[in-house]
Design a protein around this nucleic acid. Structure first.
Length: 774
DNA sequence: GACCTGCTGCGGGATG
């Protein structure tokens, strides 16, 4: 099966192109030394992103976003003109302002190390020093930069934060000559706490140097340029120059494979999020996993692949199954686990095996290998269970098929419960199969989810208030509001909310006020600021280090099953726990013959509105996608016939036993809003994938209630948030008053308009009983 | 039934 997907792999330098780089207008305006470097590289022409980016960046006045797929030369698209501009500037200006000339901000230390190597090569001949600054860089190198700032500085957002806190008075010198800020992997920041921190840091740098500094952003292919532009330059997104490498066609070979498992692995979460069912550990019932592992082993052995699983637990389970198949076949293992809880050494070893072409290797991984260092191209991508988002799947697919015009290969494995006469109606719909197909359809059409950017980010605002106070040794409320809110990065926070936030911070002793009204850190605030964990905007769980023979192999969160003598599967191997040191937070392991996968904790995933709507369209259509194998086709046809039999074309409310099922066919934010609305009317509501389960009511009663709600005026999101539970999520949410926490939660978790549209639709559709259909 | 990311300054002792 073949489909085409936008890519830019056709932009390749070939011998058929004569070395006529100087025929390019963009090449002509680069500095001569940069031209020489391009020539020495053997490049015969600039690639599309580079050709388009040189002029606007070199001109110097504008913000620019460069969106292109991995390995399309977008890094050079930024650095060739930036380095040229810095060289021209150095030649034409006699009174050189000291300081860093270009700042490169990256979400990953590994990317900084990669870029450092590449840029050093370019800048060697240009007389431009390159420095790096992140947690693994020696403090001696950092103090050298502070003493003698110059050239290009590669840094993480957290390390920029540390500059504000610890070197507040040196910043004017450090950044006085700053001409460009480059943000790499922009898409990874949009809509996150870390993104709010980055926006604040960019703004605060401009406040220090008292002028606008052009922002150059690099990103993976973007579905939504406007959101990205508004993120890069808030409220002035329309003025951002947008550069997109026009994508050529690359062939995708695609198959969706369907399997059946014995036990329905369903977990029901109530609206209050309290009673999640425990997942089963019983391996004997998991013959779908064995079948999937057997197919992976048979198909992928001897080649290089990335096998994406959605959870770290599944990474461990599948790596173990694949290793056992290798042992049975008496071959050396070539399947390696890779996820965020494995030690840096183990992860680097796996990355090394993938890069090394001499022996085949496949990584079973989470999103750790979606972004980041260049591991080269692999032969194929496997995705175990439904992908969570279109953008993520696109990014994963970009890792395959870049070798000399080869096709990208994608295999998706889904698994649905075997049908019995007690199978619940939701399981009859085969939601995992339809979610996978919906995401593939959107991918093939080039439709991506819109990132959600409506949050207040009050937790990160607390961090930034403390950071500004540390930077200046104190600040008054007016200055803080002007620097951070007002026309600043937290413009969505009004004066009333800001004042309430300062009051809440005072109540927790984060802040105190001196006689002249100056805000200073309180005793607790001082402790928070001075601890090294202050620089991150995101929350991190407490974990225990796993040690074997003195070597750290990774870390796990603590739970009751972590006791001496217990068995564990980790890093694709089997272990027995020897000792647990609660004070040092260290677990000693020894190799064992059996084990069980560890539990990891995590928040809930969120399915986008566009994905759910596409799923419904697939159920309603009569087309069966051609990329389904026989197993997936069976599941697809079962799901569609259940959709028709249960009457989803006309109804959205269904009686089932003593409960009622409600199908909004909308994204998780709307489903959560409806769940909380119903819970506020004293109903017990569970979120269950596609459906809301409303307990102890009848279809007619619920339908009447929904019709009444749809006719009433909408509540405010804040009023609705007051009745929700489990609202604290972000790092400093614990310091918020009830009122502020409600506001933060309302902005994050609700879509009142979407929910009321849906309630109106439900009110106009007849309720039904499905019991008879089973 | 989720994934990922990141982190200072200082003092004391050894070494060249």
């Amino acid at each position: 099966m073949t489909n085409s997907l936008p890519s830019d792999s056709d932009l390749r330098f070939g011998p058929e192109h004569a070395p006529r780089a100087n025929a390019s207008a963009a090449f002509d305006i680069l500095h001569q030394k940069v031209q020489r470097w391009v020539y020495a590289k053997g490049w015969t022409r600039l690639r599309e992103a580079q050709e388009k980016a040189v002029e606007p960046i070199l001109a110097g006045g504008r913000d620019v976003i460069i969106a292109a797929a991995t390995a399309s030369g977008k890094t050079e698209a930024a650095w060739l003109p930036i380095c040229s501009a810095l060289l021209f500037g150095a030649e034409h200006r006699r009174d050189q302002v000291p300081g860093v000339k270009a700042l490169y901000i990256s979400p990953l230390k590994a990317l900084i190390n990669d870029q450092y190597m590449r840029l050093t090569g370019l800048c060697e001949d240009l007389d431009l020093p390159v420095h790096r600054w992140h947690g693994d860089v020696a403090s001696s190198q950092k103090s050298r930069v502070v003493r003698n700032p110059d050239g290009i500085l590669l840094i993480t957002p957290e390390s920029v934060e540390s500059l504000f806190v610890n070197h507040g008075s040196s910043l004017a010198t450090l950044f006085g000559g700053l001409q460009y800020i480059v943000v790499d992997e922009l898409h990874s920041f949009i809509g996150t706490e870390r993104g709010a921190q980055l926006q604040s840091l960019l703004h605060r740098i401009e406040l220090v140097v008292r002028r606008r500094v052009p922002r150059i952003a690099l990103s993976a292919t973007l579905g939504d340029f406007s959101t990205a532009a508004d993120f890069l330059r808030p409220r002035k997104g329309a003025e951002v120059e947008r550069i997109k490498a026009v994508d050529g066609d690359v062939e995708i070979k695609l198959v969706l494979k369907g399997y059946k498992c014995a036990e329905p692995s369903r977990a029901t979460n109530t609206a209050t999020g309290s009673d999640a069912a425990a997942p089963r550990d019983d391996e004997s019932s998991e013959y779908d996993k064995a079948a999937i592992a057997a197919h992976l082993f048979q198909t992928l052995r001897g080649t290089d692949n990335l096998i994406f699983a959605n959870t770290r637990r599944d990474v461990e389970i599948y790596t173990d199954l694949l290793n056992r198949l290798c042992a049975e076949a008496r071959v050396a293992t070539e399947f390696f686990a890779h996820h965020g809880n494995l030690s840096k050494e183990i992860r680097e070893h796996v990355e090394g095996r993938l890069k090394d072409g001499s022996s085949p290797a496949s990584a079973v991984c989470t999103s750790t290998l979606e972004m980041g260092i260049d591991i080269g191209s692999v032969d194929s991508i496997a995705q175990i269970r439904a992908p969570a988002s279109v953008a993520g799947l696109r990014q994963r697919l970009g890792r395959s098929g870049r070798r000399d015009g080869k096709s990208a290969i994608l295999r998706i494995y889904v698994s649905e419960p075997e049908l019995t006469n007690s199978t619940p109606p939701v399981d009859l719909l085969r939601a995992e199969t339809f979610q996978s197909a919906a995401i593939v359809e959107m991918l093939l059409q080039g439709r991506y989810e819109h990132p959600y950017v409506g949050e207040l980010h009050l937790s990160t605002l607390i961090q930034q208030i403390l950071s500004v106070i540390a930077q200046h040794g104190g600040a008054d409320a007016q200055q803080l509001y002007g620097a951070l809110c007002g026309h600043g990065p937290f413009a969505q926070v009004d004066r009333y909310t800001f004042t309430a936030l300062l009051r809440a911070m005072g109540q927790h002793d984060l802040l105190t006020q001196d006689g002249r009204g100056m805000l200073l850190p309180g005793i607790h605030g001082e402790r928070v600021i001075n601890h090294y964990t202050f620089y991150t905007a995101f929350q991190t769980p407490v974990e225990y280090r796993l040690v074997s023979n003195g070597q750290t192999i990774g870390s796990v969160p603590v739970d009751q099953s972590i006791l001496p003598g217990a068995l564990l599967i980790f890093a694709g191997r089997r272990w027995k726990i020897l000792n647990v040191d609660d004070r040092q937070k260290v677990i000693d392991l020894t190799q064992a013959g059996a084990g069980r996968p560890p539990k990891f904790f995590g928040g809930g995933g969120e399915v986008a509105d566009e994905v759910r709507r596409t799923m419904r369209a697939l159920y309603s259509s009569d087309v069966v996608p051609r990329y389904l194998d026989n197993g997936a086709q069976d599941l697809f046809i079962e799901g569609r016939s259940a959709f028709q039999r249960q009457g989803h074309a006309h109804s959205m409310i269904f009686g089932w036993g003593g409960d009622v099922l409600l199908f909004p066919w909308r994204g998780d934010r709307i489903m959560n809003t409806i769940a909380v609305v119903l819970a506020s009317r004293d109903l017990e509501v569970g979120l269950d994938g596609l459906a809301l389960t409303v307990h102890r009511t009848r279809p007619d009663d619920l339908h009447r209630l929904v019709a009444r709600l749809a006719g009433e005026s909408k509540p405010t999101a804040e009023a609705l948030a007051a009745v929700a539970d489990g609202k604290a999520r972000d790092k400093y949410d614990g310091y918020l008053s009830d009122e502020l926490l409600d506001r933060a939660y309302a902005a994050r978790a609700f879509d009142i308009d979407g929910a009321w549209d849906t309630l109106t639709m439900i009110a106009s559709s007849p309720p039904r009983a499905v019991d008879a259909e089973l």
